[in-house]
Amino acid sequence: MISHVLFAIAAVLLILTYIYAVVAGNPVYSALSMGAAFFLTSFLFVLLGAPFLAAVQVIIYVGAMLIMFLFIIMIFNLNKEAAAPVRYKVSTIVSYILIMLVLLVSLFMARGVLKMPGGFTVVGFGSAENIGFNLMRYYVLPFELASFVLLVGVFGAITFVKKRTKI
């Protein structure tokens, strides 16, 4: 019962932080609201039986990504807003509505899957040991490919912002 109340509070706060991150005028407020949304998501992960993912969420998203966003905004002084901050194009709105309709129809087609009985987690379900076992036992190739993608990301970011120097 207490988990239902906690889930309701987290869900309402998540929707509010999402809305503020999208409509905020200043990019700094938007990024900070994104950080609050990531904290609430990590709370939701603890409720759903994934404590290791909750820690990873806070460390990577809040500790690395949010700080990166704030650095970029504040170093280059990007927190100015356009005169007309929102685009109202008919094509944008129509395509948005069409994509949402496709998602709703796919949810309706999967309604048999949605009627699953209540979930429970056994002891050690989302622990670091269990995740590491699955990652090394069944998902070794995606794990190595992810490390390669990270390497390519580092090289790409350095190449983009590097000054051209003559040797």
């Binding site: 999402y18 991150a21 999208v22 990007l78 807003e81 685009r87 948005y96």
Partner: peptide, 13 residues
């Protein structure tokens, strides 16, 4: 989130 991607003009947001 998709409203933000579709309708905001600031690249950071």
């Amino acid at each position: 989130g998709m409203v933000g991607v579709a309708m905001r003009r600031n690249l950071i947001i």
